[in-house]
Amino acid sequence: MIIRIEERQPGTSWVVRLDALCVGFKSLEQAQAFTRTLQARIDAPHAWPQGAFARPGAAREVPAPSQRTSAHLA
């Protein structure tokens, strides 16, 4: 993903481009803070989802009741 900051209108408006997506900001400082936060989240370690590479048709493990989250209860 290409992330870059551009000045949209001199001194009044900035845009952070995320490939084809544009997010507007009123100041360079806001755009820089957003970019730092986004990059930190991208660089953070991420766990692989359970079963992401399971074989088609393979049985899926269901978490024990004590390990279930509200997403599992729906």
Rank of each mutant, 00 (worst) to 15 (best):
T12C: 07
P63Y: 02
A64R: 15
T35D: 07
R68T: 01
G57I: 08
E7V: 02
P45W: 11
V16L: 05
R8F: 01
E6Q: 08
L28I: 15
E61V: 08
T37F: 11
A71Q: 03
V23I: 12
G51A: 06
E61D: 14
A33S: 13
P10A: 13
L21M: 14
G11A: 05
I5A: 05
Q39R: 06
I2F: 15
L38I: 01
P10E: 11
A40S: 11
R17F: 15
L28N: 05
M1P: 02
H46F: 11
T37Y: 09
T12I: 12
R17C: 13
R60M: 07
A20K: 15
E7K: 01
F34S: 02
A54H: 14
P63S: 00
A31R: 00
Q30V: 05
I3Y: 00
W14V: 01
Q30E: 11
P56Q: 09
E6M: 08
A58F: 12
G51N: 05
E61Q: 12
Q50C: 01
A44Y: 01
S27G: 10
E29C: 12
S70L: 14
G51F: 03
A54R: 15
G11N: 02
M1I: 09
E29Q: 13
S13T: 07
A47H: 10
W48N: 04
S70T: 13
C22Q: 15
P65W: 11
D19Q: 12
G24T: 06
G57H: 04
Q9H: 10
R36A: 15
I5H: 00
G57S: 08
R36M: 13
F34I: 03
L73N: 02
P49K: 06
A47L: 07
Q9W: 04
A20M: 14
P65C: 04
Q67G: 07
L28K: 12
V16S: 04
P45G: 10
E61K: 09
A54I: 08
S66H: 15
R60D: 05
S13Q: 08
L73I: 11
R36N: 12
I5Y: 01
L28D: 09
A20C: 14
Q32P: 00
G11F: 04
A64S: 10
C22E: 14
L38T: 05
A64Q: 12
A52D: 03
